[in-house]
């Protein structure tokens, strides 16, 4: 099927799409930082905050807020792509690589399910959160990560659509077999590769 042409419709944002090789199909570049969440923003005090790695309900390892800050923290600059079609280039984050945390537990998991304050979950293959591709991020643009953007800490998995970068993350559940997370159950793609435009189930 060829797409119908909309006469009179044309690209208007030439200036912001100069880096087209960095913008996945169907995305546009924004300089704002839009917000997408399914419910109210949680506010967990840092003195009761922890990040845990669990398996079958058992906590294998847990880090308090100060303990997490004491891990090998990195600054990374990455492009991010939201399924609602905005992409933001050269975003600067501060956080701990997931490799650093996973290396402190003994496991043979194939998948993880990130869990969060507010009940949000998202699933990821272990191969996508290791190899320096994913972080627990708590700084953005030189500042503490704001609650509406997922603070105190969110997952950062920039090579997948941004719903995989779970806000308000509190840990990872290690899984032998994949299981869908929150948006993945509501019709969004199980994997979410922006370069293959995997927005919805079946894409």
């Amino acid at each position: 099927m060829s797409s119908p042409i909309s006469r009179g419709f044309h690209r208007r944002h030439r200036d912001t799409t100069a880096d087209t090789d960095r913008v996945p199909p169907g995305q546009y570049v924004t300089t704002d930082f839009p917000v997408l969440s399914a419910g109210p923003t949680p506010h967990t005090p840092l003195d009761s905050w922890s990040f845990s790695i669990r398996r079958a309900g058992d906590t294998l390892k847990s880090w308090s807020w100060p303990e997490l800050q004491a891990q090998s923290v990195e600054d990374v600059t990455v492009d991010i792509h939201c399924v609602t079609r905005w992409s933001k280039l050269d975003t600067r984050w501060h956080g701990v690589p997931i490799d650093t945390l996973l290396s402190q537990v003994d496991h043979d998991a194939n998948f993880v399910l990130a869990f969060c304050d507010g009940g949000y979950t998202t699933n990821l293959p272990i191969a996508d959160v290791t190899g320096h591709q994913a972080w627990v991020a708590f700084g953005f643009d030189g500042q503490p990560l704001q609650p509406e953007h997922g603070g105190p800490a969110r997952l950062l998995v920039p090579h997948l659509y941004f719903w995989k970068s779970a806000k308000w993350v509190r840990g990872l559940e290690l899984l032998a077999a994949d299981e869908p997370g929150f948006w993945e159950r509501y019709g969004y793609n199980n994997y979410g590769d922006p370069w293959r435009e995997q927005r919805y189930a079946g894409d």
């Binding site: 944002h13 839009p34 997408l36 419910g39 109210p40």
Partner: peptide, 13 residues
Amino acid sequence: RVKTERFGGVGGP
């Protein structure tokens, strides 16, 4: 029991 949808999620420029 509070469901939210933001313009970031439904509109965009």
